[in-house]
Design a protein around this nucleic acid. Structure first.
Length: 877
RNA sequence: GCGGGAGUGCCAGAGCGGAAAAUGGGCUAGGCUUAGGACCUAGUGACUUAGUGUCUACGCAGGUUCAAAUCCUGUCUCCCGCACCA
């Protein structure tokens, strides 16, 4: 067995030294942008899960390169983020240092994978040359009305005096001091992604190259629903109104109470000065502050309380009590709902608990609903009852439109569209991120930094105490002048969510070193959009939605010429071990380094890609890697040409190669790498089998073509084997052309046929071993089908007749093979067949059998003076 | 609850309307080898045998078809997203 490590190194060094994968715009060539989601660098070792992901992309990039595309395949690092900052707090290492180390570590490991990245285009989001464009873009968004400042809740740890990210909250407690986390409202920066809600939703239809699943997830995430805003009057007030959102106006007459989300700003106003004030306040504290983390739990008991106030239903003037309750979301709809206990399960549960009346307004066709006896809400469709005369008796679904028309006419409400999508909160009260380029002036309010002053560099001199935002510890950073009035002012210390960084990094790859601009428009026009994006499904909504939003917003600002960033998306499956996702925190990782050292990179790549379809979740099993290793050894040994004895398999081999080209093209294109590898293995098995029976030129040609194709999967070994016979890199070779005319299906079928004969002969010989020797003969000739048919069409045996019918009608050659032993059994001794080449096989095979069964088998080659076809016979005595 | 996907041999995993079912692995037997590894050959659903003979299979139950693992309906189990969205 050969150790491949030396070969791996040799080629990785060459690729790097001669910049083999460096690309530039070339209008003469068709471009292909193949992109993997860039990683967050960490100091740990890559594990096999990572290796699999990156191998998936590399195979694709290599494939497209061989196919003649100008392939942009870059790599970079999503280098800002919380873990670096946590490390600073925990072990006292500066985030910059931590990140640099991690980047170096990841770079080495990615290189060890042999991926064909154009490293000259490396992008790191923590470089000021990168994040200055975050800031610049932020200002552009601001100019275009896409930035907004408003209050939003944050996780707050009182003892640390700091804001916590969701990841820093463990079971509702602070990750450091384990104090109960509270919720606090802070003024923060938002991007108005909701402006694009409709466009983002509609254009999902354009994403034909995306997995259905991801598209559905985005669809649900945006969550458009059409409904109606209905105005209820607030009792005991001067014309104050309460607006609710509903999709079920057909149940409007069944409303028996109303519910506010506890944290709704208006709640306190409602109870102000009443005896309910204190109780309500307490309840709000309990629900909002303590239960924030269990609020999403559906099984949670519905809790609420009466506010002492009432509302008036506009359609029937009924007076209904107003409650607050934990099941109403403050940020969906208007934060208030009209409750129809008879026809909504949540409302029903709540009404039962607090003894609120239930009023049936929709009834099923086949029985009467009795509000007293109901044990759950009736949520199906039916007939309207107990409502306005105009609508009683109508089908509820069909009546909705009319009811809305009626409400609009009467001025009680209006049609509206709601989205679940929220504006994007980009403020982070953290250090390791892009400073938001705003200045707070006492007189002028928030003022944007002047463009010329960019970048606002993140200062390195800060203290990591774990309390508050570290940026607050650098006074000289904070202190500045107002760009508007020139007075003393303070810088914003919030930094940007790192999803901001990753929402446009693919654009920077097109022109990564540009100092003047975010990117050169022509470069982006050449390379974008990304043709194939590859990454994890966990980014289905956030990253993938934000990136789409950025592209649309930038397009509207005239910066881009396309409106969707990723034409095709591939989401890879997860690698499991011991039933859990491979991850450091679970302690079930298999290190990449270790495996590469033991078997070589190509082995690792082949093994990981051959396991199953790349989109599937698979369980890691080390056993199989040995097989991949053996396989590569076999490939390696194919370079030793043996003296060719004859060339009877030339035609076959040519046919096989062409078939392989076609199969690989189809399968790699569709990411069916596992199938492609199987085809490759079959071919290798075949090649080693017929090696001695093909002419050298044909063999070399076939092997070369094979190597080029196989280099997608095993680039190092293929480079090495290619080097002996060719100039240049196999990585830059041309994918062989498939000559369909050379694919000879008949030859293929014949091969099946031969192998069948062989097993038949085996079977016969087995029989012969036990029984008395019998004299048998097998002849070959060209028109076997008809000869056989002619010979047996008049026999009495039904078996023969049936099979022969089939043969002539459907051409099942296999049946002929099946026939032979039967014929032999019946004492037939001259069967004519049409192959010449199989004789070799038969001969070889028979030698073994001869030995095995101690039989004397003779193969007669009757030459007849002519060369071929000859008429051999098997003689078993 | 909603949405998506999957259930095939000892295992992983192909096939997705026409013969037990690719390819690996594992296992069995034989060859090669000082031995081990590697490599080569054959076998591997069950029952049998003189036999290419019989039976049974693609979660379970029905249906369409000359023909179904493959299409349809119902059902069970598992995985993965989202989730009190009015």
């Amino acid at each position: 067995m050969i150790k491949f490590n030396k070969i791996d190194k040799k080629w990785q060094e060459k690729w790097e030294k001669y910049k083999v994968f460096k690309v530039k715009e070339d209008t003469k060539k068709k471009k292909y942008f193949c992109l993997e989601m860039f990683p967050y660098p960490s100091s740990t070792s890559l594990h096999m899960g990572h290796s699999r992901n990156y191998a998936i992309g590399d195979v694709y990039a290599r494939f497209k390169r061989l196919k003649g595309f100008n392939v942009l395949y870059p790599m970079g690092f999503d280098a800002f983020g919380l873990p670096a900052e946590n490390a600073a707090i925990k072990i006292g290492i500066h985030p910059k240092e931590y990140t640099e180390k991690s980047v170096k570590n990841f770079t080495n490991q990615l290189n060890a994978l042999g991926n064909s990245y154009d490293w000259s285009r490396l992008v790191k989001t923590c470089d000021k040359d990168y994040y200055r464009w975050n800031q610049w873009l932020f200002l552009k968004f601001l100019e275009n009305g896409l930035v907004e400042r408003k209050k939003a809740p944050v996780n707050w740890c009182n003892s640390c005096g700091t804001v916590l990210a969701n990841e820093q909250v463990e079971d509702g407690e602070c990750w450091r001091c384990h104090n109960k986390v509270e919720v606090k409202a802070l003024e923060q920066w938002f991007l108005k992604i909701t402006k694009y809600a409709d466009e983002l939703l509609n254009d999902i239809g354009k994403l034909k190259g995306w997995p259905e699943k991801i598209r559905i997830m985005q669809d649900n995430w945006i969550g458009r629903s059409e409904g109606t805003l209905v105005d209820f009057k607030l009792k005991d007030s001067k014309d104050e109104k309460i607006q609710v959102f509903t999709t079920r106006v057909d149940t409007l007459w069944g409303v028996t109470f109303m519910v506010y989300a506890p944290e709704h700003p208006r709640v306190m106003e409602l109870v102000k000065g009443t005896k309910y004030e204190d109780k309500v306040k307490k309840f709000i504290d309990k629900v909002v502050l303590e239960d924030r983390y269990s609020r999403a739990d559906e099984d949670k008991e519905k809790e609420g309380m009466f506010t002492g106030r009432y509302a008036i239903n506009p359609v029937n003037n009924e007076i209904i009590p107003i409650y607050i309750a934990n099941f109403v979301l403050p940020d969906y709809g208007t934060g208030v709902v009209m409750a129809v206990p008879a026809h909504d399960q949540r409302d029903f549960d709540f009404a039962k608990k607090y003894k609120i009346p239930i009023k049936v307004v929709i009834t099923p066709d086949d029985y009467e609903l009795d509000a007293e006896k109901m044990i759950r809400a009736f949520v199906n469709d039916g007939k309207i009852v107990n409502s306005d005369e105009k609508f009683n008796g109508s089908r509820n679904r069909e009546a909705i439109e009319e009811i809305v028309d009626y409400l609009e006419e009467m001025g009680y409400g209006k049609r509206t569209v709601q989205y679940k999508l929220r504006d994007w909160l980009i403020s982070r009260q953290r250090y390791w991120g892009t400073p938001i380029p705003m200045i707070k002036c006492e007189d002028c309010g928030y003022v944007p930094v002047n463009e010329e002053d960019l970048p606002i560099e993140l200062p390195l001199d800060v203290k990591f105490t774990g309390k508050g935002n570290p940026l607050l510890t650098n006074k000289s950073f904070i202190k500045t002048k107002c760009p508007k009035c020139g007075n003393d002012a303070e810088r914003e210390t919030d930094t940007m969510d790192t999803f901001f960084d990753s929402s446009w990094y693919f654009l920077r790859y097109c022109d990564p070193k540009n100092k003047e601009k975010m990117f050169d428009k022509r470069s982006v026009e050449y390379w974008m959009p990304v043709d194939q994006y590859i990454g994890g499904a966990e980014h289905a909504v956030l990253h993938l939605l934000y990136a789409r939003f950025f592209v649309k917003a930038m397009g509207d600002m005239g910066m881009l010429h396309f409106d969707e960033p990723f034409t095709k998306l591939f989401t890879q499956g997860i690698l499991y071990k011991d039933g859990a996702k491979m991850s450091k925190s679970k302690g079930n990782v298999v290190s990449q380094d270790e495996m590469i050292e033991k078997y070589g990179v190509d082995t690792v790549r082949i093994f990981l890609l051959g396991l199953a379809h790349p989109s599937k979740t698979v369980e890691w099993e080390e056993k199989g890697i040995e097989a991949s290793y053996r396989f590569l050894n076999r490939v390696y040994n194919l370079k030793e040409r043996e003296k060719s004895e004859n060339n009877i398999y030339d035609k076959h081999l040519i046919s096989k190669v062409n078939k392989l080209i076609k199969e690989l093209e189809e399968n790699i294109e569709k990411f069916n790498y596992n199938i492609a590898l199987i085809k490759i293995m079959e071919f290798v098995n075949y090649l080693s089998k017929v090696k001695r029976n093909v002419s050298i030129e044909i063999y070399d040609e076939a092997f070369k073509k094979f190597l080029i194709m196989f280099s997608c999967f095993a680039p190092h070994i293929c480079e090495e084997l290619y080097e002996n016979h060719n100039d240049g890199y196999i990585s830059l070779a041309n994918w062989p052309k498939c000559d369909e005319n050379k694919i000879d299906l008949k030859l293929e079928k014949e091969e099946d046929f031969i192998s069948n004969i062989m097993s038949d002969v085996n079977a016969v010989l087995k029989l012969v071993k036990i029984k008395e020797p019998k004299k048998l003969k097998l002849y070959t000739a060209d028109n076997w089908k008809y000869e056989l048919y002619e010979k047996f069409k008049n026999t009495e045996s039904r078996d023969f007749k049936e099979v022969m019918e089939k043969v002539l009608v459907k051409g099942h050659e296999k049946d002929i093979a099946k026939l032979i032993p039967m014929l032999l059994k019946k004492g037939v001794d001259d069967i004519t067949l049409d192959r010449k080449t199989e004789i070799k096989l038969l001969k070889n095979n028979l030698r073994d059998l001869e030995k095995e069964f101690k039989l004397k088998i003779e193969v007669l080659e009757e030459d007849n003076g002519k060369a071929l076809p000859f008429k051999p016979a098997i003689l078993v005595e």
